[in-house]
Design a protein around this nucleic acid. Structure first.
Length: 276
DNA sequence: ATAGGCGCCTGCTGGC
DNA sequence: TGCCAGCAGGCGCCTA
């Protein structure tokens, strides 16, 4: 579910509620999350304090004291919330941390269990390296030249490159489609055929789309929520995503959906021509 | 070596 | 009205 803007929204919500607080207790459901085989869940997290909460791509990093890091990923349907401890436990709540006062809990809820929570004794940067391939830069830090070089180095479609977290971190299916529309590039264009100017245009489009989405607290389609009922608003500004058959907001031509890189891909065949 | 497909899960929806 | 196939914002692994 959540891509960079949704994860950023969750982190901004959680940061003031978690930074400085002690994880007193840990309760784990018997269901496995995405990556427990990489590193067994370590209840030794109890007694450690969250001193810093950050986002990197779609990953959430909680730096602990005196040492260690919790690395969290929301997968498709993951949700993190700080709630009063006497609130009833929702079904599919897989991890629950008692917070220092004992009156509140941090709960991880994830029906599809594609999300993960992993503990590492290392600092955040090294901990992230243990659970995923090296992430590319945040989209704001990606230079047009680096992006163009990454495009020239592959025969994949440009959309597949946008989804590749080792090229740039944080873009998923929604924002790939929206960014390609913004840049007026066909998603199936061979990445190595992009000119330097087109690569630069696309990088700027990604940043513009993500900035607007973050300002709207992300997109809520079915399940994305943050805090107590908070919902994103960017779904109301989608240009192509999930608008198959509806008129393009720019030219009126019907939006088309194809299958690309294993994902449903939406674009306007008029505004995003297949050729240069 | 690269790139595409599948598997992992549950829940919702649209078409019959 | 009800059922069920298909699809959904994720990523890692396997294979061709």
């Amino acid at each position: 579910m959540p891509e960079l803007p949704e994860v950023e929204t969750v982190v901004r919500y959680l940061r003031p509620r978690l930074q400085g607080r002690m994880l007193q207790t840990v309760r784990v459901s018997r269901h496995r999350l995405r990556q427990p085989w990489r590193r067994a869940w370590n209840p030794a997290v109890a007694g450690r304090r969250i001193v810093q909460l950050d986002r990197r791509g779609k990953w959430i990093l909680a730096k602990l004291e005196p040492a260690g890091t919790l690395i969290l990923h929301l997968g498709m349907t993951g949700r993190l919330d700080v709630v009063r401890a006497d609130r009833p436990m929702l079904p599919h709540t897989h991890v629950s941390f008692g917070l220092d006062t004992g009156t509140e809990e941090l709960r991880f809820h994830d029906p599809r269990r594609f999300g993960s929570i992993v503990y590492s004794p290392c600092d955040p940067e090294a901990a992230l390296g243990e659970v995923t391939d090296p992430l590319g830069p945040e989209p704001w830090d990606l230079t047009a030249q680096t992006f163009h070089e990454a495009c020239r180095a592959t025969r994949r479609a440009i959309k597949a490159v946008l989804l590749d977290q080792t090229v740039l971190a944080g873009v998923g299916n929604i924002y790939a489609d929206e960014s390609l529309f913004e840049a007026r590039l066909h998603p199936a264009r061979c990445a190595r055929d992009l000119t330097q100017a087109e690569a630069a245009r696309l990088q700027r489009a990604v940043v513009r789309v993500l900035d607007r989405a973050i300002a709207q607290h992300g997109s809520t389609i079915l399940t994305f929520h943050y805090g107590d009922g908070g919902r994103g608003g960017y779904q109301n500004e989608f240009q192509v995503y999930q608008r198959t058959g509806e008129p393009c907001r720019r030219c009126g031509a019907p939006v088309v959906a194809i299958r690309l890189a294993g994902r449903t891909t939406h674009f306007c065949p008029h505004c995003q021509p297949a050729t240069c």
